[in-house]
Design a binder for these strands. Structure first.
Lengths: 157, 157
DNA sequence: ATCAGTTAGTGAGGTTACCTCACGATGAGG
DNA sequence: CCTCATCGTGAGGTAACCTCACTAACTGAT
């Protein structure tokens, strides 16, 4: 009845072997996300904000509605993401010159610098996480997960 | 400047090709999570509740503190998860016979039935998502992601 | 038996990150 | 001009987590 010593609990002993490929895929991704999140710890940037900053730097000037699409969130929520980034001096709002209803978001110099640091830390964390696989295995994994992702967005091939 | 027609935006054309293995892994997992979530839509169960119900059914009777460990959340939060499951008649709280401070959570018949349905729907959604890969590719993917996961929990091998 | 330290669950209060609805300003097309 | 649609955001809300504090109960030493 008590679960004081989980390392002796027979119900867990073979747990990894019972996990399906799907479970493992999600588990691996979760671990990678944690590694990436942890690697960016010194800059205190939430994942959603980091992602938004990345979109802004890549697609500037970008409308808030467009940012919402890219982040898969409601436009109202994208407003708040931009609020936070702007508060930190990482982005600016500018009027859209061709449509006065719209607002364009652009990165500041500081925003671009932070984005570059975050991208590098993300790259290193990923590299470290995948280091358990050799070059060929990584190439195979890349091919397989790319297949999965492309199957969902064939128009992007 | 305007992004009205994103399918014509050259900045996105080669996007998938620029994505790293890590990005793709996380993207694939996200899509799988969405597929699983969507497949369970008719039962209106949040992912966290589904996961908790699974733990309760597998390890019953299970203490709330143990459940919190398994869910990687604070015990206080596990209390609320159990509250919600109990409100839906899916689990019951019982006194722990060996420690009067503790509470054990057990599934109801309805809870077990729903868990079985959720597990099957999860299995089917995963199967569907991975169908784009042939048997051998799936086996390779399984092996690779299992390597990644085991590298993190070697004591569970 | 007593006591100090620890454990278990939960009330109280809080935060984050999302959401819907509604609204004013603006644009497109008839 | 008018109707309908678009854009961003104010107002208000929820889910899912958290910390802190507390009471009840347990453990082990004396």
């Amino acid at each position: 009845m008590p679960h004081a010593d989980s390392s002796q609990d027979p119900r867990e002993a073979g747990h990894v072997h019972q996990e399906t490929t799907g479970d493992l895929l999600m588990s691996a991704a979760r671990s990678l996300r944690r590694a990436v999140w942890h690697s960016a710890g010194e800059w205190d940037v939430a994942p959603a904000q980091a992602k938004a900053l990345g979109v802004v730097c890549r697609e500037a000037p970008v409308r808030i509605s467009r940012l919402a699409e890219r982040l898969h969130i409601a436009p109202r929520s994208a407003t708040e993401v931009v609020d936070h980034l702007q508060e930190r001096g990482l982005v600016l709002r500018e009027p859209d010159p061709v449509d006065r209803r719209a607002t364009c978001v652009v990165p500041t110099e500081e925003g671009r610098r932070l984005q570059a640091l975050l991208a590098e830390s993300r790259r290193q964390a990923t590299e470290g996480y995948l280091a358990v696989l050799d070059d060929e295995e990584r190439a195979v994994l890349d091919r397989l997960v790319r297949r999965l992702v492309l199957a969902e967005r064939p128009e992007r091939a």
